[in-house]
């Protein structure tokens, strides 16, 4: 998805704000330059919310959503209907409007995905898959999604980053992973003395199944 000539996100934000202002202050058709092409947005009489700030915001969201991890390629395809619903409710954009806006699905889907691979590799190499956690959180969030709740993959990636940064920045992780100052060592030792749990019995082996017949 992320194309080799990805648009800086601040620019998108600026466009959104300008577009929103223009929409509110002018009766003229709205013009947005997107992907190098002027896109004219006609306000319709029946729907004067077409270019409202929240709507523009939605478009930016959609754009960024697609740019983040094409990321997560197949997942996006699978959930494309969900995404459309998510960002195009009754008073929001439909697919045709998105196209009119110059959101070129084909172009977005092609191109260089290597940064995402780098993200993944970076997270994997980090070897700190827990609280430092882009890795584990990304993993966890995406699998929360696959457990039945559709989840915007872009949000998952970003959220995991924000999680990690916040944890580290706030020092919550350091506090949690330093000493447990609230734990009473003597009491814990007494408790552990009474815990008689044996190592678990294991199951029998030797049973053949199709999966292990190789």
């Amino acid at each position: 998805m992320v194309t080799s000539r990805s648009v800086p996100i601040p620019q998108l934000e600026q466009e959104a704000d300008q577009a929103a202002q223009q929409a509110l202050s002018s009766d003229e058709p709205l013009v947005v330059n997107r992907m190098g092409t002027d896109v004219h947005i006609q306000r319709s009489a029946s729907d004067d919310g077409l270019a409202s700030p929240s709507r523009i915001r939605k478009i930016v969201s959609e754009e960024i959503e697609k740019r983040v991890p094409e990321a997560v390629d197949k997942r996006l395809e699978q959930r494309s209907e969900n995404l459309e619903e998510m960002f195009s409710g009754s008073d929001e954009l439909d697919e045709a409007t998105l196209e009119e806006f110059g959101v070129d699905i084909d172009e977005l889907e092609g191109g260089d995905t290597s940064w995402f691979e780098r993200l993944r590799d970076g997270a994997t190499n980090e070897r700190t898959a827990v609280t430092a956690g882009v890795g584990a959180t990304l993993a966890a969030l995406t699998t929360v999604a696959s457990a039945g709740v559709p989840l915007a993959a872009g949000a998952a990636v970003a959220a995991s980053g924000s999680f990690a940064s916040s944890m580290l920045g706030k020092g919550a992780a350091d506090a949690a992973l330093g000493e447990d100052g609230n734990l009473t060592q003597a009491e814990l030792a007494t408790i552990v003395e009474t815990v008689k749990r044996e190592l678990q019995e294991s199951d029998g082996t030797g049973e053949l199944s199709e999966e292990v017949d190789y």
Binding site: V130, T131, G133, A136, T137, A139, A140, F163
Partner: peptide, 8 residues
Amino acid sequence: DRIATAAM
């Protein structure tokens, strides 16, 4: 992964 997410 899930337990770590809960902790975070």
